[in-house]
Design a protein around this nucleic acid. Structure first.
Lengths: 259, 259
DNA sequence: CGAGACGTGTTTACGGTGTAAGCAGCGGGT
DNA sequence: ACCCGCTGCTTACACCGTAAACACGTCTCG
């Protein structure tokens, strides 16, 4: 299900040899020999399903019909697995037909498409997104959730070719990533409440009545507060950010008095 | 070896036999009996110092000169400890003389002071902040980093008493928390690189030269990208947010044509 | 003053975790 | 034919979170 079969840089596929290792799997389908991509994809699936804390090397093995230690052939350790998960999820952007690596209808369209692409990913993998947000990035200037040099390059290219100065492009990059991260992290956490242990059959909401007595406004607003307007809010905040960037761009282009 | 580092129980030497247990503790201050607050405070200290991943019940015990299991007298488990850490850190806001629980010079001043207070906390405890950001909140509408009903109440009060409609106040709350979370999470992650294991003696920056060859813009911008303008950027984004809220407020107050 | 009750920290124990190391079977190259 | 590398399995270990039983100091009450 998490299989999106497309990626620009595909495996060389050295051909031959689909080694049906461990042949004595009698009835089932042929056992494909497990590679890094499959491991990572399974991990994403697992996290989406059971939450991050439930992910354990042995459980991952079981999820793949394999013995846990087998994973270390394709992943140097748990941290590497998690890094791989983040990378693979973020790479789904490349497969998104609505997102362009290079602007085709102006920088605002580019930013808008990119933002929505990232949001789609966050919503598709709510339990993975906190990982995207908090894993230490490879370089300090590769900011989540755009965790790759390639997108950073693309971003800078899109803005500078549309008139942004170097400084303005970098400032825009910072503001843009902050916006995405904050909004999506909260949106994702507000939706799915992926409690890792067994699903709470009940007993979740004990924050009612009594404890709200001291907070009349919160009580009064509780209906409003639990409404989900995240799509509209995302749109609005994004729009606002773009307007601000627009303003910055105009001011930097206009000769303007030296302050 | 087992009996080391205790404290001179300042024993009045009452008649009872000198029970060797805690008795022959040579120097040092009296052993205060450890309570929840001390445990949590020590945990904060520990995290600030060694990073989140290094925190272990036994190590926490050692950090307090105590045997690990002792912590369970004051904390129901590791998760509770972490929750307590988050709560205690966020509660530092109450001790901040620059932050007012109720607006004293208008809502903008209130929001500004609150934002700077939270930022001060984030910077003071960079390794704790990701925890503040990602721990599941008590109620879905208590959004990090303002993780308490009291601040939510305060926030809503501040805005509604200054003319914001209920809906506008809630929208402002959402935008404000998103902004804080995104900006501070990235700021904190960009600063401290709190690698939990032993300090890397070297070998950290291998993302240079070679790997940047394919990303000319990134290379060209690398100086700019590693500059730290976070204070100015925080200020600017906050200012922008406040202006947006101002606009919303004006429009909601003006009778305005139905549209 | 003596005897418990209680609170605090310790000891022991258990199952689960990440991972290092060695082993076993298979396919393909020579 | 051989061996070799690849893959997954098995064993082993240190460490983790935590439950349960225990030891000791102190307080209370008679």
């Amino acid at each position: 299900m998490a299989d999106d079969a497309n990626s620009p840089t595909d495996v060389p596929d050295d051909g031959t040899a689909y080694t049906r290792a461990v042949r004595e799997t009698p009835p089932g389908p042929v056992r494909t020999p497990l590679d890094r991509r499959r491991v990572l994809a399974a991990a994403i699936e697992f996290i989406d399903e059971h939450g991050l804390e439930a992910l354990t090397m042995r459980r991952m093995g079981a999820h793949l019909g394999v013995e846990g230690m087998a994973l270390y052939r394709h992943v140097t350790g748990r941290d590497d697995l998690l890094d791989g998960v983040v990378e693979l999820v973020v790479d789904e952007l490349y497969g998104d037909p609505e997102v362009y690596l290079a602007p085709q209808h102006g920088w605002q369209d580019y930013l808008q498409r990119l933002a929505h692409g990232v949001r789609r990913i966050a919503i598709a993998h709510p339990a993975v997104f906190p990982l995207i947000a908090t894993r230490p990035p490879a370089a300090p200037w590769v900011r989540p959730p755009l965790r790759s040099l390639r997108w950073l390059e693309s971003f800078l290219d899109a803005l500078t070719t549309h008139g942004f100065s170097d400084g303005a492009a970098v400032a825009a990059y910072r503001a843009y990533t902050s916006f995405l991260l904050g909004h999506l992290l909260l949106e994702v956490s507000q939706r799915g409440v992926p409690i890792s242990p067994l699903d709470d059959p009940e007993g979740a909401p004990q924050v009612e009545d009594r404890s709200l007595a001291a907070f009349p406004l919160v009580r009064r607003f509780s209906a409003l507060l639990s409404e989900d307007e995240s799509t509209a809010e995302f749109e609005e905040s994004l729009e606002n950010l773009l307007e601000r960037l627009q303003r910055v761009l105009r001011e930097s282009q206009r000769p303007g008095p030296p302050r």
